[in-house]
């Protein structure tokens, strides 16, 4: 049985990847299970400078999901490259995806170029879709022209495969995806969280200190699946499907919709062993469904 997939020449032992922001820098879980069972790991979103992010509360429960307004807390690209990646590489041989965010074109380019030089990183995932930072992040992912501009500028400065992580929060995801493809993106990650809100009705205030946050979890799976399918039918570059994946069955569904690899996000918050359990569950389900090679189902629907 074959679970191996290939994205832009990078080999993944299986298509399962903990999504950025839901699995820290990988090292946090190194003592809990052998990370090498994972196909890849998308690291916590990193910016040029260190960030605290937004004030707490920055987590709110929702029906079948969770809102977060963490706001890209990270130690900055220098610490990622000098500390986090070496720590992770001591225990993990699989694919490492650096997730990069910024507040301006130059910052995206500078941060990606630094990550591009790091041997321990295989793929760059450019986050133009964070809903929790002001004056950046999602602003680049909600316009086709801006997304294309970031893509072209990052591609010009980098040699590693560049995936652009796109937002839910748009009227025409296909137009933005196509603009990224035309600007030279090697692949796309679809999709980031959906902007949402909860209110504490006793205190009459938003639960999140930031008022709004990104919705993830099982609740968004059908929306993410639809967007992956729409983009897969319109574009020719590989897709990492992301959004509400909680089981091996969801992985199969995402791949049938057109994803070549699948990211597991909020499910890691419910169960930090979720990605590992999905990897274990996948061959069993493939057997049941009569799938010999996982690649045969990519985009069949």
């Amino acid at each position: 049985m074959v679970t191996e997939v290939n994205l832009c020449g990078v080999r993944f032992a299986n298509p399962v990847i903990p999504a950025s922001g839901t699995f820290g820098f990988g090292v946090e879980m190194a003592g809990e299970f052998d990370l090498n069972v994972l196909g890849g790991i998308s690291l916590k979103g990193t910016t040029l400078e260190a960030r605290f992010g937004n004030e707490c509360p920055r987590i709110a429960e929702t029906p079948d999901g969770v809102l977060n307004s963490v706001g890209l807390q990270n130690p900055g690209i220098d610490v990622l490259l000098s500390e986090k990646i070496p720590q992770l590489r001591k225990v993990y041989d699989g694919v490492v995806i650096a997730n990069i965010s910024g507040f301006g074109l130059e910052e995206y380019v500078k941060t990606c170029a630094l990550a591009d030089k790091c041997q321990g990183i295989d793929i760059l995932e450019v986050n133009v879709s964070c809903p929790n930072v002001h004056g950046g992040g999602m602003a680049f992912g909600t316009s086709a022209a801006a997304a294309a501009e970031v893509t072209a500028a990052v591609k010009a400065a980098c040699r590693k495969p560049v995936f652009i992580k796109l937002s839910h929060n748009v009227t025409d995801i296909v137009a933005i995806a196509k603009a990224c493809e035309e600007a030279g993106a090697d692949g796309l990650t679809l999709v980031n969280t959906l902007l949402g809100m909860r209110i504490d009705i006793n205190r009459r205030v938003p639960i999140l200190a930031n008022r709004y946050g990104g919705l993830s979890g099982r609740a968004i799976f059908p929306v993410a699946l639809r967007m992956v399918n729409q983009v897969a039918r319109a574009c020719n570059i590989p897709i990492m499907g992301c959004g509400g994946v909680s089981s091996a069955s969801d992985v199969i569904e995402m791949m049938m919709a057109g994803a070549t690899a699948v990211q597991v996000g909020a499910e890691n918050l419910k169960n930090p062993f979720a990605s590992k359990e999905i990897v274990e569950e996948l061959p069993v389900l493939m057997q049941k469904l009569g799938i010999q090679n996982i690649n045969e189902i990519i985009g069949v629907v």
């Binding site: 839901t22 699995f23 820290g24 879980m29 605290f52 707490c56 920055r58 987590i59 807390q73 918050l269």
Partner: peptide
């Protein structure tokens, strides 16, 4: 603090 994962991987309760 309001927590997400409870085990240090989501940075929700910093």
């Amino acid at each position: 603090e309001r927590m997400g994962c409870g085990c240090g991987i989501c940075y929700g309760c910093t």
